[in-house]
């Protein structure tokens, strides 16, 4: 039956791959895998993938309709998420059968028990300009730290990016654009070809309970300045 195969690869990364035949391969001839993006906590040796796939339950069946008819088959959930221009697919491993869904933004950045410390961070995606932030102490993701910013700081990023994007030496699409839609920070990239110019939304960032924004989490490589 049509399914995504959920497994842990040799690096410990939690992956999904197609069970279609012929297989889905990347440009290097390897089986194409979608890697889960999650946190690492080296001090305790834990990571967001500790609930890894059970070898007896490791198929995400795409067409199975649950007894509860309010739950859509996974493939319908995925297609509906694409149609709604969502950016994320999630599986809740906390109970069986697993819950799943799509979202336009990512809710969980690190576990609730993380402590947050003041820092200054920079990312290549933002020309390594420094920004004040709080970072989750000891947690890492996307090869960097996981920061949260005030709305004022995000507003500063937006004007910095506007300036970078309007600079004559900047290539179209070299830097992202960020814009507030109400309380939501919308992150996009310009895509240019000879015949076409369009803006592709890649993520949305909602303010959390403290009004802070984990902008670029798991998308941009943030490091401490």
């Amino acid at each position: 039956v049509a399914a995504l195969i959920w497994e842990q690869d040799e690096t410990g990364s939690e992956t999904l791959r197609s069970n279609g035949s012929p297989g889905w391969h990347d440009e290097t001839g390897q089986l194409h895998r979608a890697h889960a993006l999650t946190w690492q906590h080296p001090a305790s040796g834990t990571s967001g993938v500790h609930d890894h796939a059970d070898p007896y339950r490791n198929l995400v069946l795409l067409k199975v309709r649950r007894r509860d008819r309010s739950i859509h088959p996974v493939i319908d959930t995925i297609r509906y998420g694409v149609k709604r221009k969502h950016h994320w697919f999630w599986i809740d491993t906390g109970r069986w059968p697993y819950a799943y869904g799509t979202a336009d933004h990512r809710g969980e950045i690190v576990p609730a028990e993380a402590t947050w410390i003041r820092s200054r961070v920079e990312a290549p995606a933002l020309e390594r300009l420094p920004y004040p932030a709080v970072i989750a102490e000891g947690y890492f993701g996307a090869d960097g730290v996981l920061p949260r910013f005030t709305r004022d700081t995000v507003t500063g990023m937006i004007s910095d990016l506007d300036e970078l994007n309007s600079h004559p030496a900047t290539m179209p699409g070299e830097f992202p654009t960020v814009a507030f839609h109400g309380d939501i920070a919308v992150i996009s990239w310009q895509q240019h070809s000879l015949s076409d110019e369009r803006v592709l939304e890649i993520d949305r960032c909602y303010p959390d309970a403290e009004g802070l924004y984990a902008i670029g989490a798991y998308q941009w490589t943030w490091s401490i300045t």
Binding site: A2, A3, L4, E14, L16, R17, S18, N19, G20, S21, P22, W24, H32, A34, H35, A36, L37, T38, G48, V49, D51, L62, K63, V74, I75, I78, R79, G81, V82, H86, H87, W88, F89, W90, I91, D92, T93, G94, T102, R106, G107, E108, P111, Y218
Partner: peptide, 20 residues
């Protein structure tokens, strides 16, 4: 706890699995 993937990576895989 939730595991998160980019939808843009998962949706082509899912369509591939369904259509082959």
């Amino acid at each position: 706890s939730k595991l998160w993937w980019r939808l843009s990576e998962v949706s082509p895989l899912a369509e591939h699995a369904v259509h082959t």
